[in-house]
Design a protein around this nucleic acid. Structure first.
Lengths: 256, 256
DNA sequence: CGAGAGTTTGAATCGGGTCAAAGAGGGTGG
DNA sequence: CCACCCTCTTTGACCCGATTCAAACTCTCG
């Protein structure tokens, strides 16, 4: 169990991702932030492929401080469906949740923190309570996006939509219509998330690369021509951070 | 606005569906039940096709007392994706929800009741609070089922899975391996929910009818050979009513 | 340097979509 | 009470997109 004050990989102060996410959702004051920082306890570290939480369990209240995970279900015949990805700042079992209907599995090495003090919403911190409720709404919205991808989008649209959603959630760095961020997923994970075969994911990515839209190499993705990308898959920046529309300004600028 | 004590269509006491659902999720005592009955106010009645709640709004706390509705989104190009169906007893905007990420549209005439007193969970009714948290978990689980249908199931499996899920939620009547209940959806609605074309829904239903599995006629569906149905789509009765596995006994018996 | 995971390629197949048009109800108004 | 109309269902033909299988290639890590 690690107790250092910084994340190994990103080098940012630990809990920074979670605080940024909550801040995005609803402004916090310094009092709220220190409540979160002091209440959180460094917790388990999971190897890639390890189960963070099994299906049907009452989950512990945890936040991911580094690494990527996935909500997923495995069918008796071995095929799996990924419902969505969890990135640093995302929480599990914080909302008054009794059971979780899906497993959560680490896609990379994942570090977590225990945030039991947030269960049932912090009584004396109304802003925090609001932020947590919005985080829960966001989870719901992300699941709806996933249904839209599977239900009505073409393969290229699914990929574009997922990439843009991740870029926004990760608050990715944007430079002149290009957006770049660490991307640890295999094509197989993408296939399992987007309801397509690995082969077809591969061919579609190739086409998109040829069109100068996406480039994935050595664990890093580069999105180019963001305007084109968001147009082709009907993605709107800012929708994720519901109510207040506080999308990272850089992303919105890059598209406009 | 109606204030009568009974539902027009079903003839059951109004709020019966909601109370039954909560009861299924977590046992209530008479005190809890009368709290719900007395706090609920008969509210709007919606025509088929009317919007019960628009996307991005802070929803009023309502429960459907009769009729069917659907959570859905309509894309700019006119195509629509149905995320799931709401049946009597299902609630909108009760959980500490700030915004709703999808519209809710009436599929039939829908009567609703105002249950604002349940917002944020009834303070002095712990059992009710638990039941509401479980209802919220159930909504999450239903959305995950929808993703599984779209992501990994064949057309026939999607139909079977949806029918069985509805049978269980509606606590449908079962007689010797046959299950029958009112079914007001058009094939177009099914198509929009299951990510298939109307034509293909039609052909698949025909095949299933030919196989003696399903029969839809004049607003009523009959499911036959329930064991076969649940086997072919990997549906497990009882999973919906999470923790306590309190599926309607009749349904579980019919399959075993 | 080798092993294993992940990516890339080709060829054959078939499931499901689209288009177009014909039937069946079921409700309404004359 | 019947005729009409509108919606929903059903059918056929054609086509394209995505899956599958199998094999080669490439990268990364031990």
């Amino acid at each position: 169990m690690r107790t250092s004050a910084r994340c190994e990989h990103s080098g940012r102060p630990w809990m920074a991702a979670a605080l940024d996410k909550l801040e995005h959702l609803h402004g916090l004051d310094e009092e709220d932030r220190s409540f979160v920082r002091q209440g959180a306890r460094p917790s388990e570290c999971f190897a890639a492929g390890a189960d963070i939480c099994r299906e049907g369990m009452r989950p512990l209240a945890r936040v991911i401080t580094s690494g990527w995970a996935a909500r997923l279900r495995i069918l008796p015949d071995g095929r799996r469906q990924i419902f969505g990805f969890l990135v640093p700042g995302d929480m599990i079992g914080v909302q008054p949740q009794v059971v979780i209907a899906s497993a959560v599995t680490a896609m990379t090495v994942v570090q977590t923190a225990d945030v039991s003090m947030l269960r049932g919403g912090a009584p004396h911190h109304p802003a925090l309570l609001e932020a947590l409720a919005l985080a829960s709404d966001m989870d719901d919205a992300l699941l709806l996006s996933q249904v839209i991808r599977l239900g009505l989008q073409t393969p290229a649209q699914r990929l574009a939509h997922l990439f843009l959603e991740l870029a926004e959630r990760l608050d990715a760095a944007v430079t002149q219509d290009e957006c770049r961020f660490a991307f640890p997923l295999t094509q197989e994970s993408l296939a399992d998330a987007l309801g397509l075969s690995v082969v077809h994911i591969n061919r579609t990515l190739q086409q998109m690369r040829h069109d100068g839209l996406v480039h994935i190499r050595s664990g890093e993705i580069t999105l180019s021509r963001m305007g084109q990308l968001s147009l082709m898959c009907d993605f709107t920046f800012g929708q994720i951070w519901t109510v207040e529309r506080r999308a990272p300004a850089s992303l919105i600028r890059a598209v406009a």
